[in-house]
Computed example of a mutant assay.
Amino acid sequence: MTTIKGAVALVTGGQRGLGKAFVEELLAAGAAKVYATARKPVESEDPRIVPLPLDVTDPASVAAVAAQVGDVTLVINNAGTTVRGPLLGASRNDLEEVFATNVFGVVAVSQAVAPILARNGGGALVNVASVLSWVAGAGVYGGSKAALWSVTNTLRLELARQNTQVVGVHLGYTDTDMTRALDVPKNDPLDVARDTIAAVERGETEVLADEVSRVYKAALSGPVEGLALQG
Rank of each mutant, 00 (worst) to 15 (best):
A9R: 04
T12I: 01
L18V: 10
L18N: 04
A38W: 06
K40M: 02
P41D: 01
D46N: 15
A63W: 03
A64E: 13
A64L: 08
V69L: 02
V69I: 15
G70H: 09
L74D: 10
L74E: 09
V75I: 11
T81A: 11
V83T: 13
L87G: 06
A90D: 06
N93H: 12
E97Y: 13
F99E: 08
T101V: 15
Q111M: 12
A112F: 09
A112L: 10
I116V: 15
I116K: 06
R119C: 00
N120R: 05
G122S: 04
N127C: 07
V128T: 13
A129V: 15
A129F: 02
W134C: 02
W134R: 15
A136S: 14
N153D: 13
A160L: 12
V167N: 08
G168T: 10
H170D: 10
G172D: 03
T174C: 14
R180M: 05
A181S: 15
D183M: 06
N187F: 02
A193H: 01
A198K: 13
A199M: 09
V200C: 09
E206F: 01
E211Y: 03
V212A: 12
S213N: 02
S213E: 11
S213I: 01
Y216F: 14
A218P: 00
A219S: 15
Q230F: 12
G231C: 02
